[in-house]
Lab assay of single mutants.
Amino acid sequence: SQVHIGNTTFTFDNPEKAQKYAEKYAKKKGLTVQKNGDVWTVE
């Protein structure tokens, strides 16, 4: 599972961890999370 934030990609061994990280980061920065398969993009 991966989380894309700008030009940075974070890889997680667990989809739940990836989703939590993406949502927490997005909330903190006032951004949105797009999910595509097991990839979350914060923008």
Rank of each mutant, 00 (worst) to 15 (best):
S1G: 12
S1A: 13
S1D: 04
S1E: 03
S1P: 13
S1Q: 07
S1M: 11
S1R: 10
Q2R: 13
Q2L: 12
Q2Y: 14
Q2K: 14
Q2H: 12
V3L: 05
V3Q: 02
V3T: 01
V3E: 02
V3R: 01
H4F: 08
H4Q: 12
H4K: 15
H4R: 15
I5Q: 01
I5N: 03
I5S: 02
I5A: 03
I5L: 05
I5G: 00
I5W: 04
G6F: 12
G6D: 06
G6A: 07
G6K: 11
G6P: 04
G6L: 09
N7Y: 11
N7L: 08
N7Q: 07
N7H: 13
N7E: 09
N7V: 07
N7T: 09
T8P: 04
T8D: 10
T8K: 14
T8F: 15
T8S: 11
T8N: 12
T8I: 14
T8V: 13
T8C: 15
T9H: 13
T9C: 15
T9M: 13
F10Y: 13
F10L: 14
F10I: 15
F10Q: 07
F10H: 11
F10P: 04
T11M: 13
T11G: 04
T11N: 10
T11F: 15
T11D: 08
F12T: 04
F12L: 03
F12Q: 03
F12K: 02
F12Y: 04
F12R: 00
F12M: 02
F12E: 04
F12H: 02
F12C: 02
D13Y: 07
D13H: 05
D13M: 09
D13F: 06
D13L: 10
D13Q: 11
N14S: 15
N14P: 01
N14V: 07
N14G: 07
N14K: 05
N14E: 09
N14C: 10
N14Q: 07
P15D: 10
P15L: 07
P15Q: 08
P15N: 08
P15E: 11
P15M: 07
P15Y: 08
P15S: 08
E16H: 08
E16A: 10
E16N: 06
E16P: 00
E16Q: 09
E16F: 08
K17Q: 14
K17W: 10
K17T: 13
A18H: 00
A18T: 00
A18F: 02
A18V: 00
A18D: 00
A18R: 00
A18K: 00
A18Q: 00
Q19A: 10
Q19G: 03
Q19S: 06
Q19I: 05
Q19L: 08
Q19C: 10
Q19M: 09
K20T: 09
K20I: 12
K20E: 14
K20Y: 11
K20A: 13
K20V: 08
K20R: 13
K20N: 10
K20Q: 13
K20G: 05
Y21W: 14
Y21L: 06
Y21H: 04
Y21V: 08
Y21E: 03
Y21N: 00
Y21S: 01
Y21C: 14
Y21Q: 02
A22T: 01
A22K: 01
A22H: 00
A22W: 05
A22Q: 00
A22S: 03
A22L: 10
E23C: 11
E23P: 00
E23V: 04
E23H: 05
E23R: 04
E23K: 06
E23I: 05
K24N: 14
K24R: 13
K24W: 15
K24G: 11
Y25T: 04
Y25F: 09
Y25Q: 05
Y25P: 01
Y25W: 10
A26S: 04
A26M: 05
A26P: 01
A26Y: 03
A26N: 02
A26T: 03
K27I: 05
K27G: 07
K27P: 03
K27S: 09
K27D: 08
K27A: 11
K27N: 09
K27T: 07
K27M: 08
K27Q: 10
K28A: 13
K28C: 15
K28W: 12
K28T: 10
K28N: 09
K28G: 08
K28S: 13
K28H: 09
K28L: 13
K28V: 12
K28E: 14
K29S: 08
K29P: 05
K29Y: 15
K29A: 10
G30Y: 02
G30H: 05
G30T: 02
G30S: 04
L31R: 01
L31N: 01
L31P: 00
T32M: 08
T32W: 03
T32Y: 04
T32K: 11
T32P: 04
V33M: 09
V33P: 04
V33Q: 01
Q34W: 10
Q34Y: 12
Q34R: 14
Q34G: 06
Q34A: 10
K35A: 05
K35G: 03
K35W: 09
K35F: 12
N36W: 09
N36H: 10
N36F: 13
N36A: 09
N36M: 14
N36P: 02
G37P: 00
G37Q: 03
G37H: 02
G37F: 02
G37K: 05
G37W: 02
G37T: 03
D38F: 11
D38G: 07
D38Y: 08
D38R: 06
D38T: 08
D38Q: 06
V39S: 11
W40F: 10
W40V: 01
W40A: 03
W40R: 03
W40T: 04
W40K: 01
W40H: 03
W40G: 01
T41C: 15
T41E: 12
T41V: 14
T41W: 10
T41S: 07
T41A: 04
T41M: 09
V42E: 00
V42R: 00
V42N: 01
V42Y: 02
V42W: 04
V42T: 03
V42F: 08
E43M: 13
E43S: 13
E43A: 12
E43I: 15
E43T: 14
E43Q: 12
E43Y: 13
